Amino acid sequence: MPRIKSDQRTLMSRSGIAGLGALAFASVLSVSSAQAADVLLLIDGIEPTKGIVRVAFCNTGPLDECRQFSAEQPASAETLGFRFQNVPPGRYAFVGYQDMDESGKNERNMLGMPKEPFALSNGAGSKLIPPPDHEDLAMDVLDGPEETTIEITLQTVTATKKKKGLGKAPIETVPVVLVGDVMNPPPEGTPLPAPVLGGLPPASTPTTAKPATAKAPAAPKAAAAPKPTAVMPAPAPK
């Protein structure tokens, strides 16, 4: 079974997650002798069809610059997933937000509070002051063959607009995009593949050609009956 870690508390923060890139792999960790793992990052509470959902995680640094490993996809469902491969073990802060207007940044109000839904890992941000730091968000990614699943939920500063959690949404129904190998990232600007349900390629149904049905030979046409020939009677002798 995969290791599942989730946050369930109200998330409010001034540190936020401004400026997550579309697909920025700013730096790469050194490879240790430990075995890297896959990380499935699930983000919930999305308002479908509104903008783009951006996620990122990092092992150090200010949260506003947390985009060591990042990705995005259109807000197509209430829950979306991002599968990162070959992630070195360590402690990471996971962040995300829904870019409603597709401006490329998590916009703030006059008080510096996020104007768009945002998400922080480990239940961080339950207190507004002081704002959470990296360690408040940090969660362990362990080495080994098992995939680590991290769940974060979008929140808003206004408590009455709190988003719903993942609940019992089966992973098979979640569109998951394969971000790829974080130790060997693709060139910047390379588009991600289309998301697939549950992160697994759809089962291909082989098309079995129907055998051609042999047509029965046409029955030979019956020979037309000869038309009767009219026989003229011989003239009577005079």
Score class of each variant (00 low, 15 high):
residue 39 V to I: 13
residue 182 V to C: 06
residue 201 P to H: 07
residue 40 L to R: 12
residue 71 A to Q: 04
residue 35 Q to C: 05
residue 193 P to E: 10
residue 68 Q to T: 10
residue 28 V to W: 00
residue 144 G to F: 08
residue 144 G to K: 11
residue 196 V to P: 04
residue 141 V to L: 08
residue 204 S to L: 13
residue 167 G to N: 07
residue 197 L to R: 12
residue 152 I to M: 14
residue 149 T to A: 05
residue 213 T to M: 10
residue 39 V to L: 14
residue 20 L to M: 11
residue 5 K to N: 08
residue 80 L to F: 03
residue 43 I to A: 13
residue 30 S to D: 12
residue 174 V to D: 09
residue 13 S to W: 01
residue 56 A to P: 03
residue 227 K to C: 01
residue 204 S to I: 12
residue 103 S to Q: 14
residue 70 S to Q: 04
residue 9 R to M: 07
residue 93 A to G: 11
residue 71 A to T: 04
residue 216 A to V: 07
residue 132 P to L: 08
residue 97 Y to Q: 08
residue 190 T to V: 06
residue 147 E to R: 14
residue 189 G to S: 13
residue 219 A to S: 13
residue 121 S to H: 05
residue 67 R to G: 03
residue 36 A to R: 13
residue 189 G to D: 10
residue 23 L to Y: 04
residue 54 R to E: 03
residue 27 S to D: 13
residue 186 P to G: 04
residue 213 T to G: 04
residue 4 I to L: 15
residue 67 R to F: 01
residue 171 I to C: 03
residue 45 G to F: 03
residue 168 K to N: 14
residue 148 T to C: 07
residue 34 A to S: 14
residue 133 D to A: 07
residue 35 Q to F: 00
residue 78 E to S: 15
residue 153 T to E: 10
residue 77 A to M: 03
residue 22 A to T: 13
residue 109 N to S: 09
residue 119 A to E: 06
residue 160 T to P: 00
residue 87 V to S: 09
residue 165 G to V: 00
residue 32 S to A: 12
residue 165 G to L: 08
residue 140 D to Q: 14
residue 70 S to W: 01
residue 216 A to N: 05
residue 6 S to R: 09
residue 49 T to L: 12
residue 5 K to C: 03
residue 58 C to F: 01
residue 91 R to K: 07
residue 148 T to V: 07
residue 44 D to R: 11
residue 86 N to A: 10
residue 184 N to E: 10
residue 93 A to I: 02
residue 38 D to W: 00
residue 129 I to R: 10
residue 30 S to A: 14
residue 85 Q to V: 05
residue 198 G to M: 02
residue 209 A to L: 14
residue 132 P to V: 06
residue 210 K to P: 00
residue 48 P to S: 09
residue 57 F to V: 02
residue 231 V to T: 14
residue 126 S to F: 08
residue 35 Q to V: 09
residue 132 P to F: 04
residue 49 T to D: 14
residue 82 F to W: 02
residue 62 P to C: 08
residue 32 S to L: 08
residue 214 A to D: 12
residue 236 A to G: 01
residue 51 G to T: 04
